[in-house]
Nucleic acid binder design. Structure first.
Lengths: 238, 238
DNA sequence: GAGACAGACTGAGTCAAACTCACTTATCGG
DNA sequence: CCGATAAGTGAGTTTGACTCAGTCTGTCTC
């Protein structure tokens, strides 16, 4: 073993090599963002020639896709313990806050998913799509539960609410993803949850029903009293 | 004039050449999308060498930016006659519908603005940003008017509503921008406007106040009648 | 322990597309 | 009609994705 040996990577079984490439690719993606992600950089990190990467991944895009899917999967597996929380408002707030935290902690991944994946005509057959769908569906479920419990109005499509919530999250997050401008996660999550909740709450209507019942009662009573008074007056006049 | 002359473009004053390049670049962008927009293609369309394009535009990105800004400006100048409409709900519906129409009629431009521009760290100093801001601000104005007129609740940030509305529009439009899957513009615009409007409408509260006043009146009247009846009863018993 | 072999690995390319530059030449004021 | 100005370009360079013919090595067989 000569001292000049440029410690080249030893020969490895495919699965190990693939895992190693993906691990380094993730670091490259996290560090530089997908815009300046270069295969040569990954090759150097791994200590292997570029051709080796192309042995296992047909294209750079394919490598990025697999890396992103794996990474995204790991992150989403850390879902907040929604099940334990029973309050609809609190559940909604947790999901929104978790989204913001993911966006803030992994900006490079988020940017890639948001700008590169969504534009792909094959997006819907992507693993990322399935993962994202599973994640956003928690909002739909929460809303549906709210409706079932009679807490939320039933005349609004839960998927429309989902699109509004996540669309809003993205819009708010872009300033951070672009310019690293920090923003109040807690506060924003709270505002969004509150708008959705108060906008969809069924409470005003329920109040009105109670009031209507009270009105009916009062009117009946007033009428009865009126009659009685009239009767008494007639009696008194006699 | 030999028959073999490859009708090269004649020498032109800078402004004319710039205009010509931008016109052809727009066609190229519309036809192929920004992903496969190549400067060589534009050069060929114009009938000029690639170097000529680089004489007037420092980078391909710069050319695209200027083309997009011009194009976007023209489209947004065709704003629907919102001023004439006084109904808050109707105004909201019109803005949303107009957005969908722009997205559908110019998918290549939309994709470019949505995926390439927003990611740019310098986005906020872009002309596109200013234009987009002016456009989306109509929603903020509409909401603010609604609040001022007492039609909408005043405890919700209009800019949050703006982000929800446009975020939702984008999410709904992506399926179309990706896969040319058509979608019901009218219906979706209507749904969004309705959610926002009914979610923020102040009506239930106003109703309740009127009802509370009526209740107070009735209760007072009932009490008065009760007293009178008691007095009359006493009189009658005598 | 030797020889064969599969297949992991790579050096040295090709190719496409953005971008550059030294040079050419049309046009226009005088 | 001439010369200066600047519009225009052919022939590059560069960068980065991707390819391929061939090399080398760990393992398996006998």
């Amino acid at each position: 073993m000569p001292a000049t040996a440029t410690r080249r990577s030893a020969r490895l079984p495919p699965d190990d090599r693939i895992a190693e490439i993906m691990a380094h690719a993730r670091r490259e993606l996290a560090a530089r963002g997908h815009e300046s992600f270069v295969t040569a950089g990954v090759a150097e990190r791994v200590g292997v020639s570029e051709a080796t990467i192309y042995r296992y991944f047909p294209t750079k895009r394919d490598l990025l896709l697999r890396v992103a899917a794996e990474w995204f999967g790991e992150i989403l597996s850390l879902e907040p313990a929604l099940a334990r929380e029973t309050d609809v408002f609190e559940q909604l707030r947790l999901v929104i806050r978790h989204s913001f935290e993911v966006l803030r902690q992994e900006p490079s991944l988020s940017r890639f998913v948001l700008t590169e994946m969504r534009t792909d005509p094959a997006y819907r057959s992507t693993e990322i799509y399935a993962l994202n769908r599973r994640f956003t569906s928690t909002v739909v479920t929460v809303i549906e539960h709210g409706i079932a419990d009679g807490i939320l109005r039933d005349d609004v499509s839960p998927t429309l609410v989902r699109d509004m919530v996540f669309g809003c999250i993205e819009n708010r997050a872009w300033a951070y993803l672009r310019e690293k401008r920090d923003f109040p996660v807690e506060e924003t999550a709270d505002s969004i949850a509150r708008v959705v909740f108060s906008g969809l709450a069924v409470e005003p209507l329920r109040d009105r029903k109670r009031v209507e019942a009270a009105l009916d009662g009062l009117e009946a009573k007033a009428a009865a009293l009126g009659d009685e008074v009239a009767a008494l007056r007639a009696l008194a006049r006699r």
